Amino acid sequence: MMRGMGGLSLAILLALATASCQTEDKSPQPRFTSNRHGPVTTSAQNKSGHFIEFRSRYALTYGHTYVVFGRADENGRMIDPEVAGLAPASPDPGPYVIGHFVPVPATTGATDGDLEEQYRSASWRVMLSDAEYADVVAFIRKQQASSHLWQATVDNCNNWVGNIARHMGYKVPGIWLRPQQFITELREMNTA
């Protein structure tokens, strides 16, 4: 009986993951910027150059969710941005496909296309104080050090980025959304 229940659980997880991949992405969503407490005015953005940007991008599959963080100049342009996210460690499609069934080795840095504007599908930039930025970066580094596996239905890029958002005190949508939908709902849940 236990063996049958394990198979049923696996079938349910795979069905949910497959269903979440059936929607289509929209055209690129506008950029949104806020601070921890609400909308950012131009003068407020100029005073605090630290940011984290929750971002999604298009890909040959259903896309990718990740964060970009660093400093921005007075015009909002990124200065030496860093990228962090969770993805299969190989550019080969084999581990990606296998990772839909069993965990595969992961990378937690930049992947191809992360900073290319033509692939950005949604983004939400949050301006941070020096102390807030230091706290978030420390959490990202800790998470990078402990994340060694990727698995599409449980330990995926949405879940990884969601952990960062939760650490910051934000509400987080379900992890089985397409990346564009995940970032859009994350922003909508946490901004008025």
Rank of each mutant, 00 (worst) to 15 (best):
P103K: 05
P103C: 05
P103R: 05
V104Q: 01
P105I: 01
A106K: 01
T107G: 03
T107V: 09
T108R: 04
T108L: 06
G109S: 12
A110M: 13
A110H: 10
T111Y: 10
T111P: 02
T111D: 07
G113L: 08
L115W: 07
L115P: 09
L115Y: 06
E116Y: 12
Q118K: 14
Q118N: 09
Y119C: 11
Y119L: 13
Y119T: 11
R120V: 14
R120A: 08
S121K: 05
S121C: 14
A122Y: 00
A122C: 04
A122H: 00
S123K: 03
S123I: 01
W124A: 00
W124D: 00
V126A: 06
V126N: 05
V126I: 14
L128Q: 11
L128Y: 05
S129D: 15
S129E: 15
A131P: 00
A131M: 05
E132F: 05
E132N: 13
Y133A: 10
Y133C: 04
A134M: 09
D135H: 06
V136L: 13
V137W: 08
A138D: 02
A138N: 02
A138S: 07
F139E: 05
I140W: 02
I140L: 10
I140K: 00
R141G: 05
R141E: 13
K142L: 14
K142M: 14
Q143T: 08
Q143F: 03
S146G: 10
S146L: 07
